[in-house]
Design a protein around this nucleic acid. Sequence first.
DNA 1: TAGGCGATGACCT
DNA 2: GGTCATCGCCTAC
Length: 188
Amino acid sequence: MTDVEPVDERARSLLGRVLHGHGVSVRVSEVEAYGGVHDPASHAFTRTARSETMYGPPWQLYVYRSYGMHWCANIVTGPTEQAAAVLVRAGEVVEGVDIARERRGNVPDVRLARGPGNLARALGITDADLGTALLEPGGVTLGPAVADLGPMTAGPRVGVSQAADVPWRFWLTGDPTVSAYRRSPRAG
DNA sequence: TAGGCGATGACCT
DNA sequence: GGTCATCGCCTAC
């Protein structure tokens, strides 16, 4: 590997874009970048069957289960074999609000897609969507880039115990749908 | 084959 | 703000 992909740049470019999933559309307000094979915090740091999708071509959906019961949606951004990906952490439901409410239960609208597990649930994303090509018509798709984003902020990643201080979490400044920061108890 | 751990969320104080 | 539920995956034996 002679150079490192600008994974942080790829992550920032996802902010404001709309992710469509099974009848619900979410405007992405918060993301977290994972550098793939060189990032100790990434699932792809050690290659396993679970993370195999991340080594494939970009713009595919990587779905994993967290704490046994939550699904988390990632967008593979790196070229084949690099396994760089971006975790979509939060967003604002802009279409299909009724469907999202049905999936999430009786919570305030601002919380419908706040947090990676909640966002995946609002969009109806499960392991059945693993490997979905996001730029082609299908169950889960990604909209075009947004020109006027407004200010964004960078900070440390949430919940990771390795490389916790790398500022690869990005969110739209002041957006109410952004999830709260919580440091991993295992981070140094 | 068994044990430990987590890119979390919800609830309680 | 703090605590705990919960279970699939990974690693070590």
